[in-house]
Amino acid sequence: MTDWIDIAALDDIPPRAGRVVRTTGGCIAIFRTHDDRVFALDDRCPHKGGPLSEGIVHGHAVTCPLHNLVIDLHSGQAQGADEGRAATHAVRVEGGRILLDARLLQARSAA
């Protein structure tokens, strides 16, 4: 069973925007989409490491701010002809709070 850590309120992220959670293993981008779904991905584009959290969010995808790769928020997979995948992490919303997979703490601090 997954343990969860409460990281923030859903309303701390505007709709169609991303924000960052710092972990010892690097930054995680948390996205809130137009329909209030929340996704967590490594904040590094698989192409050249661009900060995905700063990209334009459209539908359930984000366009990397550096070179416009479009990353699917569910799979982390680059869309279209591009290749590469950003790691995704378990995240959910409960009672207006964003909960992130607590294993991110342990796994990353051990690494």
Binding site: I5, I7, D12, R19, R22, T23, T24, L100, L105, S109
Partner: peptide
Amino acid sequence: PLADLTLEAA
């Protein structure tokens, strides 16, 4: 940042 988990992890 939305949250800083580096401190808790330590």
